[in-house]
């Protein structure tokens, strides 16, 4: 039977079945979670038919509203700041040959990808707690600052890839055609980098939106974001409300990823 088929060199024993199993294992829990968010019953253990009840409850919950708003504010700021500094850094570290200290810059920029989050969280807790005492300020600034920092590498990578793929002859040609440095950046470099910058901003936004640990350690009282709110809910009796919030966040993530997918695909 199998003999009749041509010999496929890419086939390895048991690989395809394991891969399919892995995909099933990856998606089954997520699908379960989403499914239970439409539960009309009063607890996670009791199925009460399909309903949007818990979405309504979550939407009317003031704590959820505020946490969601806070998450969005922080994620927007973090995405804007991280993308701005990452774009500059990508232009500074790419296409100009090796220079002294380049490795240092790479290490610092990518550091959040390497150091376990719990360690950074502890470090920021110690640092910000003394700053809070010294300045008396305890607003969202700390969270925005921390989020901006760990979002930098996520914004940097796609922008850097875009800069690397961009021909330096574009800027040379612009300079040849009487463009000043600023006009070259404004009319040539920036428009050509835009897909990379959008992609970077979206990844930074998702990364900020998803963060749990650093937020948990840095936030002052009453500064819950959606993820830390959900983590806090765990100590109480679980209701499908958490499923509803999770599903909403998941939908937002998938939506951003789909846009990201098309933005990066389009101009390749």
């Amino acid at each position: 039977m199998a003999r009749a088929r041509s010999f496929d060199v890419t086939t390895l024993p048991g690989f395809a079945i394991t891969a399919i199993l892995a995909f099933v294992l990856l998606y089954a829990p997520i699908i379960t979670l989403v499914f239970y968010s439409f539960n009309g019953g009063n607890s996670v253990n009791q199925w009460g038919g399909l309903s949007l009840k818990w979405y309504a409850i979550a939407a009317q919950n003031e704590a959820v509203q505020q946490a969601a708003l806070r998450s969005l504010i922080i994620a927007l700021w973090a995405a804007v700041i991280a993308t701005a500094v990452a774009t500059m850094a990508a232009l500074g570290t790419t296409r100009r040959g090796k220079f002294k200290g380049q490795t240092f810059i790479y290490i610092v920029i990518n550091q959040p990808l390497m150091v376990p989050e719990i360690v950074t969280a502890v470090a920021l807790l110690i640092f910000f707690s003394s700053v809070k005492i010294a300045t008396g300020y305890s607003g969202l600034g700390y969270l925005i600052l921390a989020h901006s920092a760990f979002c930098v590498p996520f914004a940097y990578l796609p922008i850097k890839a875009r800069v690397e793929g961009m021909d330096t002859s574009m800027e040379t040609a612009a300079a040849d055609l009487y463009a000043t440095s600023w006009n070259t950046f404004r009319f040539i470099t920036l428009p050509l980098l835009l897909p990379g910058i959008i992609a970077g901003a979206m990844l930074a936004f998702i990364t900020s939106l998803d963060n749990v640990i650093i937020t948990e350690f840095v936030k002052s009282a009453g500064q819950d974001t959606l993820p830390t709110y959900m983590l806090g809910q765990l100590r109480r009796a679980m209701t499908p409300e958490v499923n509803a919030i999770s599903t909403a966040l998941l939908a937002l993530t998938v939506l951003i990823l789909i846009i990201f997918y098309f933005v990066t695909k389009k101009r390749d």
Partner: peptide
């Protein structure tokens, strides 16, 4: 002005 080898069209 220069005509570039790779054209360098925007």
């Amino acid at each position: 002005n220069t005509v570039f080898q790779s054209y360098a069209l925007f």
